[in-house]
Structures are given as C-alpha cells and as structure tokens.
Design a protein around this nucleic acid. Structure first.
Lengths: 250, 250
DNA sequence: CGTTCTTTTGATAGCTCTCAAGTCGCGTGG
DNA sequence: CCACGCGACTTGAGAGCTATCAAAAGAACG
C-alpha cells in the first residue's frame, strides 16, 4: 500500500516511553485504540498505524477545499475548524464547527470528493488519517470499525437541530448550550469560554442575519442569561438557557 | 465471532434456485452483494446471509419508534417511509422520506436506540438487516463495509439542504426536483408521479405551515411549472423548477 | 348521506431581513 | 504616540415573507 517505511519509523519511535495520555486524551479515536486490547506503548504502535500526519494550521488556512479529491479525515486536537460552502449568490453557508476531539471530513466518503470547505478559525492542531488505510484497518480492528460506524451515524442527525423552525433566541440558546456541553466534555469550563468564531460565522451557521445575532445576544444579556464582551462569553444562567434551547435540542 | 450455525443454515437455504434479479434490483445493498465477487446463486447466498426478514407494512404501521433499542436497519423495497419526531409542543418534525432503494435507521447506530419514529405512508415492503450481524460481515466483506461507509456518509449532508434559509418556493421546488430525481433513478417517470405524503407532511418536512404549502403549489401551478390534482403531480417545466431549486440543491 | 379530515382561501400580525448609519477595536503608518 | 483606516460589531427604521387565526370547500370514510 503506502508509506510502510513511515509506519516502521513510527513504530521505532513508539518504542520510546509513550506520551499517550497527553497525546491521545483529546483524540476521537483514542477509545478505538485503547480498548482494542492493546496497552501501554502498544497503543503508541496503534497510533503510529492510524495517524498519517499531525498538522498545525494557522487561522485562515484550509484543511481541505470543496471539490478536492477525498483522501483523509482529520481529528481536531486543538483549535476550531469551520466547514462551509458558498452558494451561487456568494452567500457563505456554515455547515458546522469542529472542536477538539471531533472529526472532520466524514461527509466526503460517499462523493469521494470534499463536498465543502474546511478552514481553521484559530491555531489548529489536527491528526490526518488516510481513509483508505483506515478502511482497511477497520476490517481487522473491530473497535475501530465500530467507532467509525458510530462517528458516521452520529453526524447524520447533527444538522437536523437547526433545520427546525425555531426563533432566533431559541437557536442561539441551543448553539451556546451545545458549545458549553462540548467544551465541558473536553474538560473545559461549561460556563465560560471564548467564541472562536465571528458573529457573521454564527449568523451563517444559525441561518440568521448578523444583525439579528447581535440583537439576540443583547436580548439574552438583558435577561441576565449571558454576559459577553467581545468574544469572551459567560453563561450566567445555564438552566434558563437550556430551557430556552430545549425545543431545539429535544 | 457469532452465529456460525445461522450462517450455515442460510447457506443451505440459499442453495435453491435464486430469484435474484427480481428481488434485488431495487435493493440498496445489491451492488454490495453482486460486486463482492460472487455470482448467480452465490448472490442468493449473500442475500440469505444479509437479509434478516422481509416485511410488509400497511399505511400507518411503524417500522420502529423513537426510544426503541436499535437492532436493525431496513432497506425500502416498495412504498414510502417517513421518519419524524414530536417535540414537546406536540409539533411533528418530519426528518426525511425514504423511497425504494433507500435505507432507514442508520442514524440509530450511534445512540443505539432509534432517535426517531419511522412510519409507512402507504403499503411498504422492506428488508430488515440485523445490524450486529451486518457489522460482523462488514469485517469480512470489503464491498459491504465500503457500501455501509458510503451510505452513512451520504446521509450526513442530506438534511443540510433544507437547513438553508431559502424561500418557500425555492424549498418546494427543491423538494419536487429531488423527488423527481430519486424516482427517475429508480426507473420511474421523472415528470409525473404520485406524492405519497400529505400536504401537512410536506409542510413539516420543509418547515412551512400547511397553508403555505398550499399557496406555494397554487403559485407554481399559476406559473405553469407544475400541474397537480390531489396527489397526482406533473412537472411541466423541469428546467424552470431546477433553476428555482438551484440555490437549495447547490 | 352525514361525519371527519384534508386542503384551500382570506385577512392580519409578527418575526426577521434588508438597508443604512454609527460605534468600537485594532493594526498600520506617519 | 497618535491619527488614520479597515473590518467587525452594534443599533435603528422600514419592508417583506411566512405564520397564525378563522372559515369554507372538498374528498374519503363508514
């Protein structure tokens, strides 16, 4: 196949004391590795098998662009990735944001080309996985295979959330609560974090006008539900926000 | 692994003359079977391996209900299946319609319970696939494995279409054009077919009020784009409809 | 043939978009 | 250090599209 020397090299590399916990803790495939029955530095071998490349991108750099031939999926390790398309009127449609521990590019498997653009919103670290190799490994690693199935299945209903016809306030609350939960799962604060995306990005994601986003945030601030300065966000009343978002998040 | 006895039994069963072409032509997994390297009645063996049960449902009967434990996915062979959820205000949200050749239940893999309801809109014939077995077979049948990956990947972007903020006319045109294409792929007429869903279903799917659906259809009829009587639909100007739907369908 | 649900039609209100202007923050260059 | 300029964000006023409320017409059912 490809890059066997690379594998060997990395295997040798893995013989050294393994930085596994530090490196893999935020990886979407960590459980696929770690519960595969291997342990300790064997996990590092697994990582060497799976991870094709570790990349660092600066703000504005693209992970991939629409129309490029699909070759790899990528697990975000740090930073935020935004996927979007541009319709023929030139309007940008934000499809999703990907936080550490989440996987970009799964929607490219079927068309075999990337159906959207993916760009770094800040400094991003990600692990690339050549999908052809991953697909083969899925044949011999049941846990990896199941992990892939679940990751794919998980993404199916993802966009359904903002497909509903909810008010701008409900959608914004749902967006903030969802972010909070995703940050919390990663071990960060659920009540205070920095928005890595612009108001316009949020607007394009929630299918609102940027002005509406601004107005909604002011409204939520007026209700003492949030406190926001620039991109520094504090969720003052998570229960109330959750209640507001409840119809959207189901 | 598991169920070897079952496999053997089914192999024996499959030794009989196979009705493959008739039976498999509209199956979502036909290519996974037929391109696996097997031929003729070996395909029937494959089918016997894969297909858990062939079911016929009458209008209103459910394939599965929200919250039930996930056990199987189902390929629609005839009829139309609607998936939906009911939010806490009692409003029905239609998630998708499934025509012959399409697969229901893929979004249940991750949560391991069905996240929505699936109901027959007319007389439906479908093949059930026990997912646990399918997952195992995916380990030894590369084509089946890849087929599953692609089916899953395909569904990810599916709902993104109506997530955009388009006008009611654009969304309706996109809906009709998409239906036309899906029927055409199945070998049916692309310009005339019966809507198997009610106006209310369409409204809940497109996130419009039923009244709006009615008005939009009248508008499209007035523009000589369609002709519609009850649920008998004729697309009079497919190019114009496609143009109208273009921003939505991308 | 009456009942019931679906669909259609009309009038009104409300939410969000659009257009427009102004403010703020920040990097650049004088 | 400060003025400038650019972009992001905020704020305001008005228009448009769709939802809502209300009611009637039509089809399907027993």
């Amino acid at each position: 196949m490809s890059a066997p020397d690379n594998v060997i090299k990395l295997h040798a590399d893995a013989a050294r004391p393994s930085p596994r916990p530090h490196f893999c803790s935020t990886c979407a495939f960590s459980d696929a590795c770690c519960s595969e029955g291997y342990q300790d530095n064997a996990v590092a071998q697994m990582r060497a098998l799976l991870v094709d490349e570790v990349r660092t991108l600066q703000e504005g750099e693209h992970v991939f662009r629409e129309g490029e031939r699909f070759d790899a999926i990528a697990a975000v390790r740090a930073g935020t990735v935004k996927t979007y398309v541009v319709d023929r009127e030139g309007r940008e449609q934000v499809l999703d944001f990907y936080l550490p521990g989440e996987v970009v590019g799964l929607n490219a498997i079927h068309p075999d080309i990337y159906p959207c653009n993916a760009v770094a919103l800040d400094t991003v670290v990600l692990c690339s996985f050549t999908f052809a190799r991953m697909r083969e490994l899925a044949g011999v690693m049941p846990n990896l295979r199941d992990r892939l199935f679940r990751l794919l299945s998980q993404d199916i209903g993802k966009a359904a959330l903002l497909a509903g016809d909810y008010s701008a306030d409900q959608r914004m609350a749902a967006f903030l609560v969802a972010l909070s939960r995703r940050y919390a799962r990663r071990g960060l604060s659920a009540s205070r974090f920095n928005l890595s995306m612009s108001r316009t990005d949020i607007a394009n994601y929630l299918r609102l006008a940027p002005e509406t986003v601004s107005r909604v945030l002011r409204r939520l601030r007026g209700q003492q539900l949030i406190e926001i300065d620039r991109r520094d966000l504090r969720l003052l009343d998570l229960p109330a926000l959750s209640a507001l978002a409840a119809p959207v998040l189901r």
